[in-house]
Nucleic acid binder design. Structure first.
Lengths: 352, 352
DNA sequence: CAGGATTTGATAGACGTCTATCAAAATTCG
DNA sequence: CGAATTTTGATAGACGTCTATCAAATCCTG
């Protein structure tokens, strides 16, 4: 009934060669005649042989060593990413995968480059990095690749560089998605959108805005963009000012961080007047609460859980010099009040 | 620098006991003094020992045998689920996991029960089943459990039964989510919703409707429910009739299957009149095309890819008598035209 | 067909865990 | 205290793959 899966010895026997020869074939070592190789491959096919990875890893004492470089600071999203990596690290220990999660000062390309140079010196099987799109970063990536260390960019890409893969959302797509929802929310009527970003010079924020613009069309009005530097006090002050000065605003689209300030502002709004629609990015404790309490309408999330899983998957495959699966970008996910995921245990921890 | 992860021998040495004793402790075998056990646990803690699963599985020649029971028939969603399981099966072979994907006639509780009874006889490590919520199914599940075979329900649950876990969405949540989007689409105004289901007696469809009702509130009107039996010709005919007779309809919410008929109807609509908003479930080739062409507005998807991954994860953990992680329900995912995932290779295949 | 190169076979040890056995030591109990 | 019981130690073989070595067989080439 349940028969034992074929081993390489079975393959060898079936192919009429010795174990040594079969082994030479499957591990691509030299010194095998073409005929023997053909026989072995035929036997593999016939028996449906698949290598037992458990045994292979065991014999090789394979140990994957990956480094994850995240920006430090108080940004709630990256705190969540960090927590997810920490959790993954604990789980992956039993698979002989060790993740070293490091952080460098946010927006400090100098520090990031230095850190990456240091990583190039240490013996690693792969690096994932939240990169800034910057020539120095690109050459730091090149340096890692020169040492044969695979590199995956995370959340923010460096398109021209030699990174092996990018794990994250397409920000234009995210912006377009928000554009569609803004149109839906206006039910065919026009409106006036207040865009809030960290800085217009940040490529991801700019891409989100332009994606949104694409979809809402020319008949919508767009108020002057607020640049909140991703700092919540500044966001709170500037958006408050914009709302006060421009009562025609029907929608706020916050494409950057610092949304704690936006939430605080919304909490302080008089309850009798209708508030504008609010769309923002990243499901974190304060944005979640705001959505639950009906102070905002939609959160666009890049599903950091999925991103973390993919980073590990990619790094492992790259370390084995295998082909990547699932290289399509992460899909921006739409959360309304009603389809919020249950709060996970680890999220509770980080809130406490 | 990279030091070898500790083995059980290291633990034994550190605890001052023999390998045999350490082994007795970690494998919960009898005949160990309390003191020795304490020492071993302390050593495990101190060294950060984690069992090498590769080695363990190897030594035990562990082979996981799971059966997946899906409804047969032409339903596009289940065809997709089936394709995903087939793909997973190929991938999992190298992890010594064998999935046998079987199908039984849809809606035939008799056949399903018989199949499950047969599975109870064969030597299996777990079963996943798209169950009908039905007393006979519940007792078939009980029979499997009696043979110590874990059971996971998939897509459709049997709440009162002894199933170990349910992998799927909460249909009330899905309906609420649609309700929220319907409200958004009406931009504060009221409307008239035409609900389309397979049958009102189908619990999942009914739950979706009631979730939707909860959120849209009393000021919305709801037209008489169309029961399309999940058959696309019937859906096409009945919805066409309803739209012709009731021009006040602003929104169609199709909570069931047979949406190919709905799409065909929408394609035939005169292009000059504004069509109602359309919300439906499950991202499959025809619904995707309709969304891309702007004939419908939103697809609520239960992410079968994630469900398949979770089923495998759960079955493996259950087979090892370990604790389940991630028992929270799957989150219904909102797709608009702009955030559709890229078409996967396997999806292309199945379309061809 | 001799000499050299290439291909093949046989085999041994390692990886870390599991299972099992047997004898030695420590503990309990009458 | 001696006998019965429980706890420990030592160790061996298996799982399937990888690496390595060495000798034997086969293949070219002149």
């Amino acid at each position: 009934m349940t028969r034992r899966p074929p081993t390489l010895s079975d393959v060898a026997r079936c192919a009429g060669v010795s174990y040594a020869t079969a082994d030479r074939v499957v591990n691509g070592r030299a010194g095998v005649s073409e005929k023997a190789a053909r026989n072995v491959h035929a036997a593999i096919e016939a028996l449906g042989y698949v290598r037992n990875v458990a045994a292979a890893n065991l014999s090789q004492q394979r140990l994957y060593r990956f480094a994850i470089v995240l920006p430090s600071g108080s940004n709630a999203f990256f705190r969540r990413v960090q927590a997810l990596f920490a959790e993954a690290a604990a789980r992956l220990l039993s698979d002989r995968i060790s993740l070293s999660v490091e952080s460098v000062e946010a927006f400090d390309a100098e520090a990031l480059t230095a850190r990456m140079a240091a990583l190039a010196e240490s013996r690693l099987d792969g690096v994932a990095v939240v990169a800034s799109d910057d020539a120095r970063t690109a050459s730091a990536i090149a340096a890692l690749r020169a040492r044969d260390i695979p590199v995956v960019t995370l959340v923010s890409d460096v398109p021209g560089s030699q990174r092996n893969a990018y794990v994250g959302i397409d920000n234009v797509v995210a912006g377009r998605t928000v554009g569609r929802l803004i149109r839906m929310a206006h039910g065919g009527r026009n409106g006036r959108v207040l865009p809030v970003v960290g800085a217009l010079s940040a490529r991801d924020h700019a891409e989100r805005l332009s994606g949104m613009r694409e979809v809402i069309g020319d008949t919508f009005e767009i108020a002057p963009v607020v640049e909140g530097r991703d700092r919540f006090e500044l966001v709170e002050a500037l958006v408050g000012q914009a709302l006060a000065e421009d009562p025609a605003i029907t929608t706020i689209y916050s494409a950057g961080a610092g949304n704690a300030g936006l939430v605080r502002l919304l909490e302080a709004l008089p309850p009798d007047v209708a508030r504008p629609y609010v769309f923002l990015h990243e499901l974190v404790p304060h944005s979640r609460r705001a959505l639950e309490e009906g102070r905002i309408d939609v959160i666009i999330d890049q599903r950091p859980e999925e991103e973390v899983a993919r980073v590990v998957e990619h790094l492992t495959l790259l370390a084995d010099r295998r082909e990547l699966v699932r290289t399509d970008p992460i899909v921006p996910t739409i959360f309304v009040r009603e389809n919020l995921p249950q709060v996970q245990a680890d999220a509770l921890e980080q809130a406490g």
